[in-house]
Nucleic acid binder design. Structure first.
Length: 294
DNA sequence: AGCGAACCGGAC
DNA sequence: TCCGGTTCGC
């Protein structure tokens, strides 16, 4: 089995799989992380403070695809800071944060349907639950189920398992994917970004945010900028002061994405990930230190 | 166009 | 009481 080592500044595996891009990786034992992408198990380990060693099987090349090993993060980060110097503290705070690429866009789609108006801890549980309907490829490791298998679970059973109102959209999307055929979703890769977004938003329960997540993490559109409520607030504070406190409308969503695409071009997806994760952290810290209300 | 409310259920 | 959103009705 081939193994690849990444310098610290090129990869923090734990950060990558816990920063809201994928939801099925777990820590097993000390400093070993394991999960499944596509048909392959991906495993990473490191000695404290050391470099991450990553391997995958049965396909030893799967890990490189998942981590986009061909991207030299040092170059990306340097270019981002050249384009927007105010990003320096952000990229310094999260060394080794890479944008991942999932092998199957359907896993990305169903995963982010689980994130709708939800907490990270419950998101993990729900996505793991969906995953357990796929083919078992090891101890607690599952290939993600195909759309047909998800459709067969049924809305009522999903509700029983705690999916709430997401049960309806997940089932509806699964049926829709079955109807369109398995080639439909991957075929969006060869469309222009805007067309892919429109096609995804056509699916029930899929709006701009989920569509952009699928575009960035599942379909390979590096210019996609998913704007959630945290990134929205952080962006308004930095670049759109007039919009602080305002709601995120369709028009403003587009303006934010276009702003970052204009500034960062094809690096917009990578650049957004730093501010996104920072805004999540701030949200958590803010809650922890929040005083009880009168 | 922009805003607010409803929506499941679990975490804090 | 608050969500890493979408949809619907003003």
């Amino acid at each position: 089995m081939s193994e690849r080592e990444f310098p610290r500044e090129e990869l923090d595996f734990r950060l990558c799989v816990t920063s809201g891009q994928v939801f099925r990786f777990v820590e097993c034992g000390g400093s070993v992380w394991r999960g499944v992408d596509g048909g392959d198990v991906i495993e990473a380990s490191h000695e404290s403070g050391g470099r991450w060693r990553v391997r995958s099987f049965p396909d030893p090349a799967a890990a490189d695809r998942f981590l986009r090993a061909e991207v030299r993060l040092a170059d990306v980060v340097r270019r981002i800071v050249e384009l927007e110097p105010s990003w320096k503290p952000l990229v310094d705070r999260f060394p080794g944060l890479r944008v991942l690429r999932q092998a199957r866009a359907d896993e990305t789609l169903f995963s982010f349907l689980c994130t709708v108006n939800n907490h990270l801890s419950r998101i993990h549980r729900l996505v793991q639950t969906l995953g357990s309907f796929g083919e078992c490829v090891g101890d607690g490791l599952f290939r993600f189920p195909v759309a047909g298998a998800i459709a067969e679970i049924g809305e009522s059973r999903l509700r029983e398992m705690g999916f709430g109102y997401r049960a309806r959209t997940i089932t509806a999307v699964a049926q829709e994917l079955v109807a369109r055929g398995e080639d439909w979703l991957p075929s969006l890769k060869s469309m222009p970004y805007e067309e892919a977004v429109r096609a995804l938003c056509d699916l029930p329960g899929v709006g701009r945010k989920v569509a952009d997540c699928v575009c960035l993490f599942g379909l390979g559109f590096d210019e996609a900028v998913p704007v959630d409520v945290h990134l929205w607030r952080a962006t308004a504070e930095r670049f759109f002061p007039d919009w602080v406190g305002k709601s995120l409308t369709e028009h403003r969503y587009r303006a934010v994405g276009d702003y970052y695409r204009e500034k960062f071009g094809r690096l917009a997806g990578f650049a957004h990930q730093y501010l996104f994760y920072d805004s999540i952290q701030r949200g958590r810290r803010g809650r922890e230190t929040k005083r009880p209300r009168r």
